[in-house]
């Protein structure tokens, strides 16, 4: 199982704005906490360990590899 590398989000600009808006006015610590919670929520939603492993690997790889 691999993780999706192609675009999969409708209205990417809208999503990106929502993501940043969620962090508006937060301290660095609160932002970090929000990100951590978000990662856990999304990871649970995906559930599949193989996909999660592939996602970790994709996130870990440098710009040249992506």
């Amino acid at each position: 199982m691999s993780v999706m590398r192609e675009p999969n989000i409708d209205d990417p600009d809208g999503f990106y704005q929502e993501l940043l808006t969620a962090h508006n006015g937060l301290s660095k610590a609160d932002s970090d906490a929000l990100n951590a919670r978000l990662i856990l929520v999304l990871a649970n939603h995906i559930g599949d360990r193989a996909v999660l492993r592939a996602a970790l690997a994709l996130a870990q790889s440098g710009p040249s590899e992506t």
Binding site: D32, A33, A36, R37, I39, L40, V41, N44
Partner: peptide, 16 residues
């Protein structure tokens, strides 16, 4: 940070 995120979520989100 992750540990506390798990604990924060656990109160209302059973998945955590």
């Amino acid at each position: 940070i992750f540990r506390n995120a798990v604990l924060d979520l656990a109160a209302h989100a059973p998945f955590a």
